[in-house]
Design a protein around this nucleic acid. Sequence first.
DNA 1: CAGCGTCATGGCACCGGGTGTCATCGGCTA
DNA 2: TAGCCGATGACACCCGGTGCCATGACGCTG
Lengths: 187, 187
Amino acid sequence: MPRWQPDAHGRLQQAALALYGERGFENTTVAEIAERAGLTKRTFFRYFADKREVLFWGAAALEELFVTTVEGAPESAAPIDAVAAALDSAAAMFEDRRAFAAVRQQIVAATPELRERELIKLASLAGAVAAALRRRGVGDPAAILTAEAGIAVFRVAFDGWVDPANELPLQRLMRDSLDELRAIAAA
Amino acid sequence: MPRWQPDAHGRLQQAALALYGERGFENTTVAEIAERAGLTKRTFFRYFADKREVLFWGAAALEELFVTTVEGAPESAAPIDAVAAALDSAAAMFEDRRAFAAVRQQIVAATPELRERELIKLASLAGAVAAALRRRGVGDPAAILTAEAGIAVFRVAFDGWVDPANELPLQRLMRDSLDELRAIAAA
DNA sequence: CAGCGTCATGGCACCGGGTGTCATCGGCTA
DNA sequence: TAGCCGATGACACCCGGTGCCATGACGCTG
C-alpha cells in the first residue's frame, strides 16, 4: 500500500473545479480545496503557483500545439494561413472536451481575477505565435498583428462554441470567424 | 487651516509611481506608499480598489473617449473607419504625456501582475468599442472582431511610441499599424 | 537484513493584501 | 451653540502565499 494516494495533482484540480463551480472562486479557500483532495494548503502550493493557476493547466500544451503547427505549415503559406492551420489543430484538440470546457469557461467568465489570468495566457499564446511567425521570416509588426488577430479569431470562435445554443463544430466556427475578419479588414 | 492635506488621491498616485519605479512593484508595500503620502494603508484602499489599480487611473477616461468617438463617426463610415477615428483621438490625448507614459509602461511591462491588469483594461476597452459599434448597427461577430483588431493596432502603435528609439508621433504609428493590419488580412 | 538517503507531505510561523467596524474631530449648517 | 457630516485613523481579522524544518515510507546499497 502506497504511503500516499496517487495523482495529487489531478485530485487538487478536480476538487478546485468542483468547489469553484459550487460556491464560486472567491468563496472557496485553498485550505478547502486541499481538504477535499485529502491534502494540505501547503501541498496545494507545491503543485500550483497560485489559486488561479489550477484552472489553466492545459495552457502550455495549447501553446506548443499552436507553435508547432505554425512552424510546420508549408513554406509557401502566407502568415495568416499558417495561423489558420494552427486554429484548425487547436479546434481538433478541443473537439471532444466541450462539456468540460463549457463548465470551466463559465467559472472563468464569472470571475474577474480568472479573466485576468486567461487574458495573460492568451497574450502569451499570441506572443509565442508571433515568435513562430518571425522564425518563418515574417517581419514586425506584421508578425504581432497576425498573431493577435489569429488569437482574436480563436476567442470569438471558442466563446461561440461553448455557448449552449451552439451546435456547430469548433473547426467550422474558427473558419467562419477568420472569414469574417478578412471581410472587415478588406472594407 | 484644513484638517487634512488636499488631494490625497493624487499624493497616493505619485507616491506609488515613485516607489514602484524605485524598488519595483513587488518590493513595495501598500503601507509604504501610504506613509510616503502621509496617510495610512486603510485610506489607500478607500481610494484604490487594490495595489494595482493606482496605475490605471486614466483607463475610464480613455474608454469614454473611444466610445464617444466611435459613436460620433459619420454614419457612412465603415466600422473599421469609425475605429480608426477613435485611434486618432486617443493618439491626440496621449501626445503630450509621452514621458509619463513611458515610465508607467516600463513598470507595467516588468510586472506580470500589472500586465494582467493592463490586459483586462484593454479587454474592457475592446468590449466597450464593440458595444458602440453595435449601436451603429454593426452585427456580431463583426463588431467584436473589429474592436479587437482596433485594440491590437492601438497596442502595437503604443508600444512602438514609448520605445526610446522612436521619434514618430503616436498618430502616425497608429495609422501605419492599421495599414499593416489591412495588408495582412488581404493576403 | 540493516542502515541510509530520498522525496512527497505535514506543520507552523510569518508576511502582506484587503476588509469590516468603530472612534475621532474639524468644518459646515440650523 | 448644538449637532451632523465626511475624511481619516486604529485595530482586529481573514486568507493567499512562502520559508523552514520535521516526518516517515520507500528504494537502494552493503
